[in-house]
Nucleic acid binder design. Structure first.
Lengths: 215, 215
DNA sequence: CCAAATTTTTGCGCGCACGCAAGTTTACGT
DNA sequence: ACGTAAACTTGCGTGCGCGCAAAAATTTGG
């Protein structure tokens, strides 16, 4: 099976990238090193990842996107769309995994990694849009995508805030802006979107095509 | 005045980039050409723009961000936040400017330019967040940023859809998915966010700190 | 089991982004 | 007016992303 080997090298690259980055620091690892550690050509690396940071981040992020979609789908049908989505997102960004702990610590200390990590949130938008569309079959597809993108954007704001506050806290231990934990921050950022999610869900439930959309 | 000169070279680079791109096509213009046409060193180009496409896009985008913020601020205080924001955004993306017409046509025909153009929407989030915060002084700042980011994300979805449908229309003239104009598309994508914007605005008007935010 | 067809890997080359350390210009104080 | 400090520009070197075409590997059909 050919697909098997591809996933194998993919994971080999992820693992090698994360290992080397944790070992000598993110700045001191070139893509040639990662490729060599994974036993492939440097050129091959860019067939799998389009930037040096991507492999490192992918080792942590991996299947967040599909898991958040699955989490939305797993919620019982009688809970509101807003609660389903918000809880699903928060659930995926609440990781007590201690391996991920110091990985995230490393990410926070490198601007390039921070940016790349924030960008990975975009990956959830596609699957999330599908999950929303599946839960609300009569909803306009453009609406589903817009809502999913909005959720992703709000989550991005929360993560960005959290990253910057933790980096501030690391450099200036006395000057914390009283910013909460990541789950709390994410919840605060997503709460304002709840009305939009629920009214869109209800509109679709009544099979109305939003009469004001044309006017 | 030193700031004067910087803006001058900035605009010189933008103009040169757009001119060359329209003349010989986006693929056949290197940053050395742009720098030479603007009379500066190639290295200097990257002191102003961080990618080859950025200058071309900036020539079209220019001050969208500040203009959308100004448009929000210009709406009378008695119209709802949702209407103010949505109309402001749509207004900025409705350009009958015929110079911009063929510029956008060029953008649609280059994947790299398309991506860069979509990314520029992010630039409105900061000013938009400020405008929202100014209009609703009692609103949580994180909420303002989350809403602004959501609006930007929804606008991004609309633009992406529009770009891809127009490119499809250009290649396959007979197979149009009946996608509307960009303003209509943008309105459809932003409408679902209206409830979120208005309830957040009303919450802030009553000076409540959203008691469920902590629970 | 071998050969054709498809897919993946690899080497090569180009252009680009950016850190760094000069060199050059502009602003300001005396 | 002059010298100093600050900001901007420039050249250089390095690593990176990727298109392209040849080579290697893997599937498929006979």
């Amino acid at each position: 099976m050919r697909e098997r080997k591809k996933q194998a090298t993919r994971e080999a690259l992820r693992a090698a990238a994360l290992h080397l980055a944790l070992e000598r620091g993110p700045e001191n690892v070139r893509v040639d090193d990662i490729a060599e550690a994974a036993g492939v050509s440097p050129r091959t690396y860019n067939n799998y990842f389009s930037s040096r940071e991507e492999a490192i981040i992918a080792a942590v992020t991996a299947e967040r996107a599909s898991r958040v979609a699955a989490a939305v789908a797993a919620r019982p049908a009688d809970v509101s769309l807003a609660d389903a989505v918000i809880d699903a997102v928060i659930g995926q960004y609440t990781d007590p995994d201690d391996h991920a702990r110091n990985a995230l610590l490393m990410i926070t200390s490198s601007p390039a990694l921070r940016a790349c990590y924030v960008d990975t949130v975009t990956a959830i938008e596609g699957p999330l849009a599908e999950a929303i569309a599946e839960r609300c079959p009569d909803m306009d597809q453009l609406t589903a995508e817009a809502l999913a993108a909005s959720v992703g954007a709000a989550a991005k704001v929360a993560i960005r805030q959290w990253l910057q506050s933790t980096s501030k806290a690391a450099s200036l231990p006395g000057f914390v802006v009283a910013s909460g934990s990541l789950p709390d921050l994410t919840r605060s950022a997503l709460m304002p979107l709840a009305p939009a999610l629920d009214t869109a869900a209800n509109r679709s439930r009544h099979r109305q095509v939003s009469p004001r959309a044309i006017a």
